[in-house]
Amino acid sequence: MRGGYSIIDEPRPGPFARVVVNPLWPLVATMLAGPLYGWGWALFNGFALGSASRWRELTFVGLGVLATVGALLLLGTLKEAGTLTDGAMPYVRVALKALWLTVAYAIYQRQADSFEIHETYGGTSANGPLGLLLVGLVLPRLLSGIKGVL
């Protein structure tokens, strides 16, 4: 039971607190479904949890998006110039994945502290594997289906 004085690193759960999951699951979603779903879920989770570092997490995602766009533009230019061959593309993909995972891991590390405090004070968490199934498998297929119809 928390008293009246508020400590700076404590989460302040919002109206979606019931769907908060362990931040490990959005990290796994980034590995399985890519940054769009993983980062998106991590951000939602951070705000639902009222994570003390939620604005910093948002900054990480912003920087990750900028770095990805920058890398894609650079790769496009190199490919047009003929510097980058098709054979090199699998290696480039690995480098991009490493970048996405770094961002996801940085978010995870910050959010994990808030989640631990959330649990210490009796906060509940939703079913992470079910969320992973929805965000990592169902949602991408649903979106790709909608894209196909449009």
């Binding site: 699998p90 690995v94 480098a95 490493a98 995972l101």
Partner: peptide, 25 residues
């Protein structure tokens, strides 16, 4: 600390992927 964990995780992931690709190629 966290930096070492992060480096090992990302490094291990890169090493695994790159060695798989390089050996197959």
């Amino acid at each position: 600390g966290q930096r070492r964990t992060l480096m090992l995780l990302i490094g291990g992931y890169l090493l695994f992927n790159l060695s798989s690709l390089l050996l197959t190629d």
